[in-house]
Structure formats: C-alpha cells, structure tokens
C-alpha cells in the first residue's frame, strides 16, 4: 500500500478577482521508505504539493490519503495529531525557535501531547541528536550555529517523533553547496538506516543524483 496517495488533486488560489491554479490534477503515490524529490521550476507547484501532503493546506479538489486515511475529511484536531505523530517537517529557513537551545528545539514536538515519560523523552532526543551528529552542541542556541548545523537540528526535530514521512521544502536552498550535499547525504543516510520516507522538493538539479526517485512537476502537473 502506498504511504501517500494523491488522486486528482487540484489547488487554486484566489488572487484578487482571478483564480490561479497551482495544481491542475495530481495523481501520485509515494511508497514507504522512498527517498523522493519533487523537482520543478519556481512557481511550478512543488511547494503547494508538499503543503497539501503535510496537511498545511486544503486541496480545492481531489483526495489525499496518508497511510490509507483520507486527510481531506479530517478535522483540525485529527490533522494536528497526524502532523505531530506521522509527519516531520524540514523548512528552507530551518524555522528554529531562537530562545530555545538545540535540545529544547528538538524536544518541542514531543511536548505537544506529552505522552512520553521524561526519561523516554530524554532518550529519544539524545538518540536523534546523535543521529545528526550534534552531541557537542546541545546547549547552543540557533544563533550560535552554522546554517548546516541549524538544518541538522531541524532534521532531528522532524525525526524525534519517529514519523513515517518527512517533508522537506527546499531544505538546502539557504546552504552553500558543500553543506547542501552534506545535508542531503544525512537525509539519505537516515532514509536507509531508519527507513523514514523522505519527500522533498528542490529546484537544484545538481542534487538529483542522490535521490531514489524524482517527480518532475511543471505548471501544476506531473510531467515525469
């Protein structure tokens, strides 16, 4: 069964009086364990696609299923639970909380429901910090880290809830090419070792070589 299944998904935005179609009918399946990149030019609809998969927005038309559950029919609480437990997010601008240190930023998703005991929480956070190689930077605040380190914190935060799917929107856009490659390598490594499904979008064709699958999107439709 596909982890993510999109059927006839359309999304239009109202710009003044005009209706601008961002997605014109997307059919896509992502299987568990895939390391997939959505490639397309700026304005092609790749970020919109990721936002819809991550329940950050609602499609105008069509169906989106994650692990067999129809997300378009979920209420706000169900969508929050889904995002917290099943989906991890990595953003282009890292989106770390500046007043929290590395440990605290990573721990944030675990505090939404506070289901884990303190010890379990500590183990989980320590585990992902090790996985991204930031053991020596636990007490550091984001403004004390480099771009690559910040993105690693974001990756760790995305993984701390052991999600089935990690969505990354232009994760390397704000990084230099060397760091960008390092981040991509890390994501690929995590995909292999932890069997986490990655779906990320990028406009950088130079990074294509590392991904398992490429989905090309152009003018709101998948072309490849």
């Amino acid at each position: 069964m596909a982890l993510v299944k999109l059927s006839g998904v359309k999304k239009s935005y109202k710009l003044g009086e005009t209706l601008v179609p961002a997605l014109r009918g997307i059919d896509l399946e992502i299987r568990a364990g895939e390391f997939t990149s959505v490639i397309g030019a700026s304005g092609s609809g790749k970020s919109t696609l990721l936002n819809l998969v991550g329940c950050l927005d609602q499609p105008t038309e069509g169906s989106i299923q994650i692990s067999g559950a129809e997300v378009t029919e979920m209420n706000e609480t169900q969508q929050c639970d889904l995002r917290n437990e099943k989906i991890g997010f990595i953003f282009q601008s890292f989106n770390l909380v500046p007043v929290l240190n590395v440990w605290e930023n990573i721990e944030l998703p675990l505090l939404v429901k506070a289901k884990l005991s303190l010890d379990e929480r500590k183990k989980r956070v320590a585990s992902v910090i090790s996985a991204v190689g930031l053991d020596s930077f636990i007490e550091h605040k984001p403004d004390q880290l480099s771009g690559g380190q910040r993105q690693r914190v974001a990756i760790a935060r995305a993984l701390v809830t052991k999600p089935s799917l990690v969505l990354a929107d232009e994760p390397t856009a704000n990084l230099d090419s060397k760091t960008a490659h390092m981040i991509l390598d890390l994501m690929a490594d995590l995909n292999k070792t932890q069997n986490v499904t990655f779906l990320f979008c990028s406009h950088d064709e130079k990074l294509i070589g590392r991904v398992g699958r490429i989905v090309r999107i152009q003018d709101g439709v998948i072309v490849e």
């Binding site: 706000e76 917290n84 437990e85 997010f89 989106n95 909380v97 944030l108 939404v112 935060r157 809830t161």
Partner: peptide, 16 residues
C-alpha cells in the same frame, strides 16, 4: 508568524 506556523506544523493546536 512563521514561528507560530512552525508550531502548528509540528502539531500544536491553536489553543496551545
């Protein structure tokens, strides 16, 4: 705003 959006994205409810 973006920080708040991030909290929402990682599963925080509006009332939280």
């Amino acid at each position: 705003t973006r920080e708040i959006g991030t909290f929402r994205a990682i599963g925080y409810m509006p009332k939280q």
